[in-house]
Nucleic acid binder design. Structure first.
Lengths: 349, 349
DNA sequence: GATGGCGTAGTAACCGGTTACTCGACAAGT
DNA sequence: ACTTGTCGAGTAACCGGTTACTACGCCATC
């Protein structure tokens, strides 16, 4: 029982079946007339040798669809996981393999992966997730875009700001400003006026767009807004917890509602609020953003994002024949999901 | 500005630099002496033409590391996402690309993907997640194992039962029975005697192993156990909710604690308990399993699983030179995470 | 019976790299 | 001056497939 020393190639099959390699190839492809008896011989040889064609070799001579690559910070975060799921599903539906890379936010890894994808002849590279928008970032993305375009791959920025004219990159995102506007208006119409915004992070694109919607809601309804209610906070549970703890320690009765920039922040904030002996929504109302799992568990009213659809849209766009230089960004709409974290204030005004 | 009609190949670079293709290859590989002046010419040509070597072509002539493929039900589930994260990280650390495939539990997709991975010459295929253990499944896996082994790929079953002697598959898993034993003992030592097990699903490997630990804990401590407290329930939130609802409607005071087979089931159960007007842990204690996000949000005492480490171990094992025919299954230990969902009963017995 | 067309199968070139082997030039040794 | 050795570069074979082109046998047709 000698182990298979070498992989079985099409030549082995040809020899075994007593035909030429061309015949084997044609019998398997089925696009060229082959005598039924010959075909049977070939298929039997294939079965007996357990031959599997080498996709890499085939890709050399035939233009075959390339893989779709997803780059995310981490798969552990529901927000990314949902999007990645959409990407994978759509890619599979279109007959593409999905390559995945997690960067942990490290630009080095991102760069290395983009380079690898050029070598792999990936058909599309999808970068997911918000970022700090600075010059370094813009330059980096612009370089990626041109490099990938030159290699015939397409770059899709998913839930990231567009790069602007003349840069060959496609963009798909959520309507963050619209969603933030809507949920803020929801709080305002429930009678809340002093609404804490938890998640200020200047330069962070997701934060910036959401806070913009929050402010716009006040402005549109002609309600005055206290900038001191905008609270800095990173986008994770712990930060939400500590920021809220701090805020409650400083001035308890300063606000009646909280708009957390993400559900994860909200989860942390909820814990802080409860530990402070306050009840939701009786003492404090709170809303979040994203509609990811913690939201349902804590009964959080939030903004639902079509995550999976975003991933699908990214792939569809990438595999379409749209010109990346001129195609406008796609923006997916959002809607509010009402649960039980908002109390209607007495309308005695 | 005529778009690059064809990809730039090593021959283009050679022509542009006025050298032979061999020289270009060697100048880039750097493993063969090349005159510095020649090397400079080559590198300049590479830069000017923006040449990127074709990894697929290289893989044909040189034995290069293959990709690592992960197959999961879905990336949306934290349990899978954590494991996938571990796989991706370890694969990246070992210089491999990660391919991902979600099956939604469809054996057809799984089969198709395994076949594709053979064609792609993947180095390892990692199947993750529990399954219904029946003859059909065993036959399928055995077929995969032999097929992949014949193509030189390795099969790793992650959090799935081993296939037994003579089948070339590696196995990595959690100590489900041990963890279930420990957390049941935790409830017993807190004074609980009537403990509802929520998540019975005969044939489902994860469920079977956990319920075994639950029963063993009673047996080891010589405490009688009422089989009627083992409740059927699927492994999702909704099922946990409805099963608990039903149980509470049937006989409220029948049990003092609940052992949910997963944290997700627990999350559903918690909601049902609260809606029934009962409080946790004052009226009912509850524990879960997995230690995935809902656990922290609902303050659930649970069994922590080293998910990410499982993924890493799977990759390490796959890329090691261990013989899949003889290598014993790896089992990763677990530990209890105590939060606030268990009440110590009055020790008045 | 020579000619042409059709249906199958084989030969060899090609995809884009790597590398064993060959070869010329030049320096050192005798 | 001739051999020998070394260095650097080119030629061509090869990796494992696909496919354009060629060749052959057979039948119908003139």
């Amino acid at each position: 029982m000698s182990g298979p020393a070498r992989r079985v190639t099409i030549r082995d099959v040809a020899k075994h079946a007593g035909v030429s390699v061309a015949t084997v190839s044609r019998a398997l492809a089925g696009d060229y007339p082959v005598q039924p008896s010959t075909r049977r011989k070939v298929l039997r040889a294939v079965r007996e040798l357990d031959y599997v064609p080498n996709a890499q070799a085939r890709a050399l001579s035939v233009a075959s669809p390339g893989a779709v690559a997803i780059v995310v910070n981490s798969v552990n975060t529901a927000y990314y996981a949902y999007i990645a799921q959409g990407v994978e599903k759509q890619a599979a539906a279109e007959g593409r393999l999905s390559l995945i890379c997690t960067t942990g936010g490290d630009p080095e890894r991102e760069l290395a992966f983009v380079q690898t994808m050029r070598e792999q002849r990936a058909e599309a590279v999808i970068l997911v997730g918000s970022v700090i928008l600075d010059d370094d970032y813009l330059q980096r993305m612009t370089r990626y875009a041109h490099a990938l375009a030159a290699s015939g791959s397409r770059l899709v920025l998913c839930s990231r700001p567009p790069l602007g004219e003349g840069v060959p990159a496609l963009t798909v995102g959520f309507d963050n400003t619209g969603g933030a506007h809507a949920i803020t208006a929801h709080l305002l119409s429930a009678g809340h006026r002093r609404i804490l915004y938890l998640g200020l992070r200047p330069g962070h694109t997701t934060s910036d767009t959401r806070v913009a919607g929050y402010r716009a809601a006040f402005a549109d309804l002609g309600i005055e807004h206290d900038p001191a209610l905008e609270t800095r906070c990173d986008f994770d549970r712990r930060s939400g917890y500590t920021a809220m703890k701090q805020r409650l320690a400083d001035g308890p009765g300063d606000f009646t509602a909280v708009f957390a920039a993400t559900d994860v922040i909200a989860a942390g904030a909820v814990q802080a609020i409860r530990e402070h002996g306050l009840r939701i929504p009786d003492d404090i109302s709170i809303v979040g953003y994203d509609d990811v799992p913690p939201a349902e568990d804590i009964g959080l009213t939030t903004v639902h994002l079509p995550h999976t659809e975003l991933g699908r849209a990214a792939v569809r766009l990438a595999l379409s024949s749209k010109d990346p230089l001129t195609e406008p960004p796609i923006t997916l709409g959002t809607h509010i999901v009402v649960r039980s974290s908002v109390k209607r204030l007495g309308s005695g005004r």
